[in-house]
């Protein structure tokens, strides 16, 4: 299966799960955000917001080449 490149940004506490090449991260074509989160070994429920190219998406979103993916944990402090 073909591979695609995405840009990955993991915010706050999720940064510890960041792979080395976040600017040019390779995934298999057909990978969803949910599969990506699992591949990065990010714990279930640790991701509260998923943004792709600046727009909110859900975990079922199928990644496309060149996507800018941002994963954000719950932030509630005041």
């Amino acid at each position: 299966m073909a591979q695609i490149k995405i840009e990955l940004k993991l915010f706050v506490t999720l940064a510890e799960f960041a792979p080395e090449n976040t600017d040019n991260f390779t995934v298999q074509e057909g990978t969803t955000v949910e599969m990506l989160i699992r591949e990065l070994k990010i714990p279930e429920n640790a991701v509260k917001l998923i943004f792709v190219n600046g727009k909110k998406q859900d975990a079922a979103y199928v990644l496309k080449s060149g996507d800018r993916v941002g994963l954000f944990p719950p932030v509630g402090g005041g």
């Binding site: 706050v12 944990p73 719950p74 932030v75």
Partner: peptide
């Protein structure tokens, strides 16, 4: 890290930020 949003009475509001009420953590990662 921080975030700011604005919502009006007719908007969905926090559901868009934190998800549905049944699955809320009491606090965030702070």
């Amino acid at each position: 890290s921080g975030q700011v949003t604005v919502f009006f009475p007719e908007d969905k509001g926090y559901e868009l930020v934190y998800g549905k009420r049944g699955h809320l953590p009491a606090t965030g990662i702070e």
